[in-house]
C-alpha cells in the first residue's frame, strides 16, 4: 500500500492527466482534473506546483516554455519514459488500494 495515499493520489492524477493530454501547463492540469471529475476533485495550486517541481527533479516530467492557445507564455509539462513507468506502477497500486478499501467497506 502506498505510504501517503493523498499525495500518491495527487501524483497519480497529474501523471494520468499528462499521459492523456500529452503536454500541458499547470493551469490546464487543474482545469482538466476539475472538468473530467465533474468538479468533484479540485487540485489546489499550493499542492500542484510543488508536486510538479518534485516530479521534474525526479525526472518523471520535463518542462519547456511555450505559448498557450490564448497567446500567453506558460511552462508546459510532458511525461518522460521514467514518468510513464511511474504511472503504470502507481495505477496498479491504486487499483489494489481501491480493491482493498472496497473489501473493507463491503464487509458485513
Amino acid at each position: 500500500m502506498a505510504k501517503n495515499d493523498l499525495q500518491g493520489a495527487l501524483d497519480l492524477l497529474i501523471l494520468k492527466t499528462l499521459s492523456q493530454l500529452g503536454s500541458m501547463h499547470g493551469y490546464g492540469i487543474v482545469m482538466h482534473i476539475r472538468r473530467v471529475s465533474d468538479e468533484l476533485l479540485i487540485v489546489e495550486e499550493g499542492s500542484l506546483y510543488p508536486a510538479l517541481h518534485r516530479m521534474e527533479q525526479n525526472g518523471w516530467v520535463r518542462a519547456s516554455w511555450a505559448i498557450t492557445d490564448f497567446g500567453r507564455k506558460a511552462k508546459w509539462y510532458a511525461l518522460t519514459r521514467a514518468g510513464r513507468e511511474q504511472l503504470t506502477s502507481r495505477e496498479k497500486n491504486w487499483t489494489q488500494v481501491v480493491k482493498g478499501v472496497d473489501a473493507i467497506l463491503r464487509f458485513a
Binding site: H25, G26, Y27, E45, Y49, H53, T68, F70, R72, A74
Partner: peptide, 17 residues
C-alpha cells in the same frame, strides 16, 4: 524568477477564465 513567471502565468490564465 522562473517560478515567479510560472505562477504569474497561472494567475493570468485564471483571470482570463
Amino acid at each position: 524568477h522562473e517560478i515567479d513567471a510560472e505562477l504569474h502565468a497561472h494567475m493570468a490564465m485564471c483571470i482570463d477564465q
